[in-house]
Nucleic acid binder design. Structure first.
Length: 533
RNA sequence: GGCCCCAUCGUCUAGUCUGGCCUAGGACACCGGAUUUUCAGUCCGAUAACGGGGGUUCAAAUCCCCCUGGGGUCACCA
């Protein structure tokens, strides 16, 4: 009988969920779900964070947002808990004592400074570092008396160096990987204060929690031989290891890292994400949140991505279904996921591709949901007024159409939700379309009069009135339409002009045109004065 | 530096295990054209890759060797 599939993800409570970490978590989750197994969330908090809730909540929230549920872990518990490493001391102590008794681990009183010197010397001499084993054969009595004297010590696992045997890892992604134990230092497994080190705690937890497949990023590959030896020493069965490639920064092969944020700011692929953040987050009052950047999952949630899009993009980062399929729902991915089809080389995270997935999934969102989410952004930006009522909002969303890629994009169309005298003109567009052309202001004056007289309501009616005006004035439509757009929306580009006019209504249009005329005249006047002076 | 991993269009990838159907497929981006009052979109089209060198073979992106390049990791971090 094969063991039931159980996978895990073990984040440290750092207060943020790394997008690359999320990808690792996703693969674990997918593998478990595909095999109808279980997915465990375990918290690696051997560092003992002080504000656990604060540090953990954003991580759990990212899982919730993406819909990656866990079967055991924080908030829900489970039968092989506790799920916080800080509460599992007894397991580690016990395992450590077993190793000590069996002579598979030893007390090491070597002061850390000396270890450091030895390591540096080895490096200087360009040879592999191996720790000294001076304390390996200390008698029980001597150990006791040195401890009583207050000497500091650590406990090291005794690597079986003398055997000729190689440590072989049959990795589910990378195939057979060999390591030579005779090259490996004895790892510290317990600090003097009795707290375990990651490599040790991890083995015990994975074994005790009956994890069948350890799917993790490839930077752990070099930890694996040590862990494999620990499994054996402790009499546990090894899980299947699968080392998936790490997620690289856009356009590079370097691991995506939060510490390199400033560098990313300048990268062309990341630039748009930062710019979007700079525009949107201040409107939402989030500018002081500090760490809300594109390396975190929370960024994508806050700026209005769809879980479907992020999931789709993450799944395609290092995994493919076949030679064609790009767009996949979570169901499809679960149905088809396998470790065989995980690539070995690191995959650069591509924000452009994510955006294209987003555009696709956005098109599938029902109108009502779109309205709800957009209104939420308007509300958070303080634009909760009579103009954001369902009816108008629906019209705007329809007119905006595909231009709404992120929910927060609605904030780029503020002109529909602000008062007529609050419109901000894009300086460049205003100059080019209204101030500079000789007769633009004059035409706008006449058009405003015409509009005022006319009975117009629908987009088609506005279209008709403007076209009649064009004929009457014997001009090209291009001569008025750009000025008109800027006058009404303040912008050079946007939704269909007649749609915009219909949404705003005749009164608003006329008011806005008149205001632009005034502004235009004053800017022209200013120019003349300057020219004359 | 030691150990380990990786290597196909600008990017994500298919193809590699099981050599021939690969004059290397798809997607994103980019470029061009059409549609359009702008922008976006949509449709059509174009450009674009097996890191290099040796083998093995009738045949190599695919197997072997070497080189080069990139990366990960070397803690009383996780």
């Amino acid at each position: 009988m094969t063991k039931p599939v159980r996978t895990r993800f073990a984040p440290s409570p750092t207060g943020y969920m790394h997008i690359g970490g999320m990808r690792t978590a996703l693969f674990n989750w997918l593998f478990a779900r595909h095999h109808a197994g279980e997915f465990v969330l375990r918290i690696d908090d051997t560092d003992r964070a002080r504000n656990m809730d604060e540090a953990l909540e954003p991580i759990l929230q990212s899982f919730r947002w993406l819909g990656l549920n866990w079967d055991e872990g924080p908030e829900i518990g489970g039968s092989v808990g506790p799920y916080f490493q800080s509460e599992r001391d007894e397991y580690y102590t016990q395992a450590c004592n077993t190793l000590l008794q069996q002579g598979k681990a030893f007390y090491d009183f070597t002061p850390p400074e000396q270890t450091k010197i030895e390591r540096e010397t080895a490096e200087k001499e360009k040879r592999n570092y191996l720790n000294n084993r001076n304390d390996q054969n200390l008698s029980e009595q001597e150990i006791r008396s040195r401890i009583e004297r207050g000497e500091k010590y650590v406990i090291r696992f005794l690597v079986p160096r003398e055997s000729e045997r190689k440590i072989v890892i049959d990795d589910a992604v990378r195939g057979r990987v060999e390591f030579d134990p005779s090259q490996m230092p004895d790892p510290v497994i317990m600090r003097a204060d009795g707290t375990p080190l990651y490599n040790f705690a991890c083995v015990i937890d994975d074994a005790e929690m009956r994890i069948s497949h350890v799917i993790r990023a490839e930077e752990h590959l070099s930890n694996t031989p040590v862990q494999a030896m620990l499994y054996e020493a402790l009499g546990y069965d090894r899980p299947v290891f699968a080392h998936i490639p790490y997620v690289a920064a856009p356009g590079t092969k370097e691991k995506l890292s939060k510490r390199k944020l400033e560098k990313y700011r300048k990268s062309p692929q990341f630039k748009k994400l930062f710019e979007a953040a700079d525009f949107i987050f201040p409107l939402l009052g989030l500018e002081n949140r500090g760490g809300l950047d594109p390396v975190m999952v929370e960024y994508y949630e806050q700026i209005g991505y769809l879980p479907e899009a992020v999931l789709n993009a993450l799944a395609r980062l290092g995994w493919s279904l076949d030679d064609q399929t790009e767009i996949m729902s979570l169901d499809t991915i679960v149905k088809n996921f396998s470790l065989n089809r995980v690539v070995k080389s690191p995959a650069g995270f591509d924000p452009e591709k994510l955006l294209s997935f987003q555009a696709h999934w956005m098109a599938e969102v029902p109108a009502e949901e779109k309205r709800k989410r957009c209104r939420d952004y308007l509300k958070r930006a303080g634009m909760d007024n009579s103009k954001t009522e369902d009816e108008r909002l629906e019209l705007v969303i329809q007119a905006v159409g595909d231009r709404l890629v992120l929910f927060s994009d609605i904030l780029k169309f503020q002109e529909f939700f602000t008062e007529d005298d609050q419109i901000e003109y894009e300086a460049k567009a205003f100059k080019k379309r209204i101030v500079k052309p000789e007769n633009a202001v004059e035409l706008l004056v006449k058009l405003a009069d015409d509009l005022e007289q006319a009975s117009v309501q629908s987009s088609g009616e506005f279209d008709r009135v403007v076209h009649e005006f064009v004929e009457q004035q014997e001009i090209q439509i291009g001569q008025i339409i750009h000025a008109l757009r800027v006058a009404i929306t303040g912008k050079a580009a946007g939704v269909g002009l007649f749609d915009a006019m219909a949404i705003l209504g005749k009164e608003s249009c006329v008011a806005r045109i008149r205001r632009a005329i005034q502004q235009g005249k004053s800017e022209q006047g200013g120019q003349e004065i300057r020219q004359n002076g």
